[in-house]
Design a binder for these strands. Structure first.
Lengths: 352, 352
DNA sequence: TTGAAAGCGCTAACAA
DNA sequence: TTGTTAGCGCTTTCAA
């Protein structure tokens, strides 16, 4: 109103000038914008959201933030959303707290969409959002609904790749330390791994349930696994944080040499994987691209109308070969033909 | 409106019934609430915010999320805010991006308050918020304004404690690897450390500028420090993530034994500090209490009226003695009289 | 204890 | 291209 008065126009014109594609003459727009700036005026997003019947808030639902992969996700996602003119409302999904209650702020603020990142009970949560007509997007997980877009790393292929690499290097007795059993990531990584073994005519691997995606889970699982199964020479872990735990248990509690006694491979490529104390061989999730795809989908408003069919996007991961796994035949030299980012503290030089 | 119709009352009454302390007869309230529930009605927070002229959004501004300490902060803070009926709007402050632009969503959504967690340029950012009459709260940092409440760990005392422990254990040549130079945490930890040395008549320590709070900064700083200064027998790092980097450099690049050749102490007590690969002695920040204090201050609306004078709260940290530092005189046995959480993977058993 | 009515700050028809 | 007008969904005086 003040701006309108000062510019000698109506509030409607000010409103139009403040919007990117409002219909105004360039001259008035410039004048209005100038006066608005000098008056330090900013449109009130609450009122705007109310009038437009949709706002720029995106609900981001996270769970277990113990896993260092998720902070990386949250940071990048928030930045990308900001660049797209969207804003992040962060909600923490806590085991044992009522889902509807957890989600209620998102519903109350009429978020434009929700993205579920690493939250358990995704399936129920999506149900609730959908029943309130809020589009849902999943990152790093999926559910079996057709009206929900999800973007993941190709976990199936990742699991296969790991199995093949290990078999090619002559490992004989493989094990898998699982993560949270009720997650699609865990299922797919395990399935890819097992499938590859079966396809190669190899006996199935031992599966040691970790129960959670945490350092502690990996540590304890390794402790249970190894004394029970002496000949194991390679362990694929459901993700990096589990692998770090396993690695520490193998080395510090069981006194094993990695990779001489046993190879360890993770999944994600979190920052700590590149630290010399671990130097973990892993499958890197293509996070940038995953988030790109996700944010584009949100902007397109996928799943809003059902003919643009949303879907499951799975982007291939990339092997990052470091020293925690022997990836060539024993007698051979340490170098091998696989693409690698180089061993050691390779990421120190790159921007993180 | 639907609820009002179904209950045979006015919308005003529904509104009153939906608020905690609205003036309604218990009977009508119950009836309204019941109908509201059955109609799955939820008040629209945008409209509510508009009408009430304040909402339940709290702007949480973070910077460098590379440091694992901050995810822990964000998670706990979000949970606590949620429990208090407040909601988190997360904003990422990126080096080089215009501050006002970064903050603009918070202003546009008329957040009830902002809390700055580990963001650079805090001082300018607070200025902007205050000029828009938004209360500011700082966690883990402070500025020199009287109208801004800040809650930190007692970094001065923490720095002193570290120096005293190291001197008591007979260390002679001490060094400090600094973090970001423009932060109050860095200044205070360094100052406490130096002050204690001076008070004990010990020559000042070498200060190696890390330049940032990151693993890489610690790694590189240690690499510069050690070859240049051969006799150093203890390093205090500005925080844990820096210490982990330093530790890896000392062990893996410089081939030193910790703590035999050199003691390393950090600050924060992040999860990774307890991992056997590091087993880092550190000062634990009393995060729960810090956040308690902070959220209470927000709820009280400190800094809203200036007579309840807001202030700088500094809560003492706690030593967590692990194996990365020798804390007793060399000839003595490995046990020592200081309180300790126990060495090794002590946190594995605790809830995290 | 309740209802009527005005208004929070903005946008979006509809006219002009 | 602009102004007028009617809401968006809620809260809150003010009366009753």
């Amino acid at each position: 109103m003040d701006v309108a008065k000062a510019a000698g126009v109506s509030t409607a014109t000010v409103s139009r000038a403040m919007q990117r594609d409002g219909v105004v003459s360039p001259a008035t727009r410039e004048k209005v914008l100038e006066i608005a700036a000098s008056l330090r005026y900013r449109p009130n997003n609450l009122a705007r959201g109310l009038a437009r019947r949709q706002n720029s808030l995106i609900g981001v639902v996270v769970g277990d933030i113990t896993n260092p992969f998720y902070p990386e996700v949250i940071e990048r996602l928030t930045k990308r959303l900001t660049n797209a003119g969207l804003h992040t409302m962060l909600v923490n999904m806590v085991d044992g707290v009522d889902i509807e209650e957890t989600l209620s702020p998102l519903l109350a603020y009429q978020v434009k969409a929700t993205v579920f990142v690493a939250a358990p009970y995704t399936s129920d949560a999506c149900e609730i959002c959908r029943s309130h007509d809020i589009p849902c997007f999943l990152l790093n997980r999926y559910v079996r609904r057709r009206d929900i877009t999800s973007v993941t790393c190709d976990n199936l292929a990742g699991g296969r790749l790991v199995a093949e690499l290990l078999l090619n290097a002559g490992h004989r007795k493989l094990a898998y330390i699982s993560g949270r059993p009720d997650t699609s990531t865990n299922r797919d990584r395990a399935k890819g791994f097992s499938d590859a073994l079966r396809d190669r005519g190899h006996p199935p691997c031992i599966i040691e349930p970790g129960g959670a995606y945490s350092y502690e889970a990996g540590y304890k699982a390794a402790l249970r696994l190894i004394p029970a199964q002496h000949e194991i020479d390679a362990v694929f872990c459901a993700n990096d944080i589990v692998a770090l735990g396993a690695l520490d248990a193998l080395r510090h509690a069981l006194g094993m040499k990695v990779p001489n006694d046993i190879s360890v491979i993770g999944f994600d490529d979190i920052a700590a994987a590149s630290w010399p104390a671990y130097d973990l061989t892993t499958i890197r999730q293509p996070l940038e691209r995953m988030i790109d795809v996700l944010v584009s989908a949100i902007l397109r408003g996928d799943a809003a109308d059902s003919d643009k069919k949303p879907g499951l996007v799975a982007i291939p991961g990339e092997l990052v070969a470091r020293s925690s796994a022997r990836l060539s035949e024993r007698p051979a030299a340490s170098s091998h033909p696989l693409r690698t980012t180089g061993a050691g503290i390779d990421r120190l030089a790159t921007q993180r």
